Amino acid sequence: MKKAGQPSFLSRVSRDKYLLILLLPCALYYLIFKYVPIFGIIIAFKDFNLVRGISESSWVGFKYFKMFFNTPDFWPVLRNTFLLGFYKLVIGFPAPIILALLINEVRKSFLKRFVQTVSYLPHFISNVVVAGIAVMFLSPTGGMINNILHAIGFEKINFLVEASWFRTIYISTDIWQHIGWGTIIYLAALTGIDPQLYEASRMDGANRWKQMKHITLPGIAPAIVIILILDIGKILEIGFEKVYLLATPATYSTADIISTYVYRIGLTQGNYSYATAIDLFTGIISFIFIISANTFSRKVSGSSIW
């Protein structure tokens, strides 16, 4: 029921029509590419046949889920995916926070803008180019990294065929590519901190380190918590492209993750129901992670997404 004096729905739409128009492309994107495809998850419970279509394909229940759980590839693929996501969270999550704090301490505006611009640029480079750069730098013949190792007296390493190096390569390239973009949120949060707090702390004799510890970090804590919750929910959602481009048959023991496994099962072998079941399983686990992280954060810190 509308309260007295409250504008009607149509009047609010008319008042905010330009803001709604700006929101429309984003809403259409999520509607078309995120919500409409949800209908396709029923393939995971059917023996999907391209000729018969989704509606005419026979139901098989949890057959493909059981098949995935019982396959010898289940634990290796799940372990590789989880470890890659876990290392990305532990090492990659603090990186933009540290960079944002360092940029915030720079007093010369020209230098600050230069560092921001240089750190943002890799985010706009495609994963194909990033993987190509990594391959060139790590080449055992003319790669810069191996040339440096050889110059200081170490033997050259063929990084791309060493399974033990794959996670390091992936995490390093991911941090380099996205660290600058990740600082945008934290730099925006820093602008919301009252400058008078810094002035009062200086009058009380607080140095830069104490100001960062007692003012800056608490000021951006809500943003840190929200990003952390979202990143925890994406632990198993490792991107396909970069892993596929950097992985080689020699590194499959650490590089084969759920998304590459789904690619081989779904597109290469044409088993769409099996691939959909695996993806649905991943989505459920990610949902559990984000719900758990949000509940824990709300109880411990009072900050949460909802």
Rank of each mutant, 00 (worst) to 15 (best):
L10V: 09
L10C: 11
S11H: 11
R12C: 13
V13I: 15
V13Q: 15
S14E: 06
L22K: 11
C26W: 07
A27Y: 13
G40D: 10
I41N: 10
I41D: 01
F45D: 11
K46Q: 11
W59R: 08
F62Q: 03
Y64A: 08
Y64V: 00
F69P: 06
N80F: 12
L89I: 01
G92F: 14
G92I: 05
I97F: 06
I98T: 07
L101E: 08
L102N: 08
R107A: 12
K112T: 05
V115D: 07
S119W: 06
F124D: 02
I133Y: 13
M136E: 05
I148A: 02
I148F: 03
G153K: 03
L160M: 15
G182F: 06
T183L: 01
D194M: 10
L197C: 07
E199M: 00
R202D: 14
L217M: 11
P222W: 10
P222C: 03
I224W: 01
I224K: 05
L228K: 00
G239N: 04
F240T: 07
K242P: 13
V243G: 02
T248V: 11
A255N: 09
I257V: 11
G266N: 03
N271M: 10
Y272T: 06
I288V: 06
F289W: 11
A293N: 03
R298G: 08
K299V: 00
V300W: 11
S301R: 08
G302K: 04
W306F: 13
